[in-house]
């Protein structure tokens, strides 16, 4: 019996470590580096929270999408950002090693918008969005299993909503408050 408990504990520890390591991998540690800086708005939404919030989603499409979100991290700096150019360059260098592909990059002067994604067998596994403008700098990183079919269905559903109720959002939009 004791052996079983030990085994379960080790297994749990292993899962927790691998989860932490994998979660770090998607933003190359930027979240942890800057989350405690002055002026940082850092939000970490574990998969369990989105899983629970999916129960309150009215439409099947929303539920499916929320359930496929495993972990989300949001880091926003208003006014002054400590994130430097070398941080972005370091992240980009590491991204290829982490199988993250550059999807779109737009840079104008110091402003930057960048999306990176990791796809496995037609499923989107990681999505990292960086944005930097004069007044705001931020990073959103989402880990999950998103299929394009789910996105397709959600887009179609959104179109139906907009046709049914022009100018109004559906009553059951899930809202997560920090």
């Amino acid at each position: 019996m004791n052996r079983m408990i030990k085994f379960k504990a080790i297994l749990l520890l292993f899962v927790a470590i691998s989860y932490t390591v994998r979660a770090d991998a998607q933003d190359a540690g930027l979240f942890w580096k800057y989350k405690s800086y002055d002026g940082a708005i850092a939000l970490r939404i574990p998969g369990a929270v989105t899983g629970i919030s999916s129960l309150f989603a009215g439409e099947r499409e929303e539920r499916m999408l929320l359930r496929r979100m495993h972990a989300t991290r949001i880091l926003v700096f208003e006014d002054r950002s400590p994130v430097t150019d070398s941080d972005f360059q370091k992240f980009n260098r590491k991204a290829t090693r982490r199988q993250l592909e550059e999807i779109i990059t737009v840079r104008s002067g110091k402003d930057r918008f960048q999306i990176l994604a990791r796809e496995e067998k037609g499923t989107l596994r990681s999505l990292v969005v960086f944005f930097r403008a004069e007044e705001v700098t931020g990073m959103i990183s989402v880990r999950g299993r998103f299929r394009l079919d789910d996105l397709n269905r959600l887009i179609k559903k959104t179109q139906e909503w907009s046709e049914e109720k022009p100018g109004k959002l559906p009553a059951s939009v899930p809202v997560l408050r920090a």
Binding site: E101, E102, I103, I104, T105, V106, R107, S108, G109, A117, E119
Partner: peptide, 9 residues
């Protein structure tokens, strides 16, 4: 000003 759109998008 730089714009890069990957084939994947």
């Amino acid at each position: 000003t730089v714009v890069y759109v990957a084939p994947k998008l």
